[in-house]
């Protein structure tokens, strides 16, 4: 197994994790994440799905330690998040955010190189000029080849299209040489071709680099097709966790989303495929709520 992991242990362990925004006294807010417990194996792609506001993005933010766990614990490679420094976490976990606005004119190459920041060895007298090592450049270079953004190297990130920018963000995440990749709605604003492109890049990275991937998505079909297992959230709590076959079923989805869908098989892979019914009766929806 990989050296950062205890032998045979999972990459991510989440135990009794709860989280809520704003802990103002007196007025108790609802838990955004409600006693979640699960694990993600090394080299696995876990899809996190659920309705709007079910806590998908919040879960991702807790896993990247941007938000603190309220109760419970998140362990990466057997060691609790709280026991790791921010730089230490950044060497393990890379995040590809959902939306990305670049305000300042940085080039693609500069942006990807920033992914090497957690690997810099800071000396107190150094002001960081010429800190990029050959290894840094090599790593950034390979990341840009893997995501096919090398031809864009000297373009400004702000001038790129949505699909190109998303690939640059993945390249920067790869430059961190992470063990775990967290993706927040990686395909949400992309057209069909770019969706396929991003998904196959993620799939390939899992196979070539042994990356552990946690992917948040609204798209049940994408999750079904590209993820090894799916975590279905309902109001912050774990509703179901398992292979696409186990999770994506008519009854399960009705219980979580409150509406009926049609489910058949993907013609190639045989994984479940979700289709909207041609006519949705609103009374039906109310019955099931």
């Amino acid at each position: 197994m990989q050296s950062w992991l205890p032998v045979g242990g999972p990459a991510i362990e989440v135990e009794g994790l709860s989280f809520r925004y704003g802990t103002t006294e007196g007025r108790e807010r609802m838990w955004t994440l409600d006693h979640l417990s699960f694990y993600v194996d090394a080299g696995e792609i876990l899809g996190v799905v659920g309705p709007n506001g079910s806590g998908k993005s919040s879960l991702l933010k807790v896993l990247s330690s941007f938000l603190p766990a309220g109760e419970g614990e998140v362990r990466l490679g057997g060691l609790s998040l709280g026991k790791r420094s921010q730089a230490d976490i950044a060497r393990l976990v890379a995040v590809v955010p959902q939306e990305y606005t670049q305000v300042f004119p940085f080039t693609v190459a500069e942006t990807v190189l920033m992914g090497r920041f957690p690997h810099r060895t800071a000396r107190w007298w150094s002001i960081g000029i010429g800190d990029e090592t050959v290894n840094d450049l090599d790593c950034a270079h390979q990341s840009m080849i893997d995501t096919d953004v090398l031809p864009l190297a000297d373009r400004l990130v702000s001038d790129l299209s949505g699909g190109e920018r998303q690939r640059v963000m993945i390249a920067r995440a790869l430059a961190q040489e992470p063990k775990i990749l967290l993706l927040d709605e990686p395909t949400v604003f992309l057209d069909l071709q770019h969706q396929i492109e991003i998904c196959s890049i993620v799939r390939r990275l899992k196979e070539e680099r042994g990356l552990t991937v946690v992917l948040v998505s609204h798209d049940l079909n994408l999750a079904s097709q590209y993820c090894d297992r799916i975590l279905l959230l309902k109001a912050g709590a774990l509703f179901r966790l398992g292979t696409p076959h186990e999770v994506i079923g008519v009854d399960t989805l009705r219980a979580v989303y409150g509406c009926d869908v049609l489910i058949d098989r993907h013609p190639e892979s045989g994984v479940p495929r979700v289709t909207m019914p041609s006519y949705v009766s609103t009374t039906n929806v109310r019955d099931h709520m």
Partner: peptide, 14 residues
């Protein structure tokens, strides 16, 4: 440099 990318990204970069 990192902060110009937004706080969340800056944190995820360590």
């Amino acid at each position: 440099n990192m902060l110009t990318l937004g706080e969340e990204t800056a944190r995820s970069l360590g």
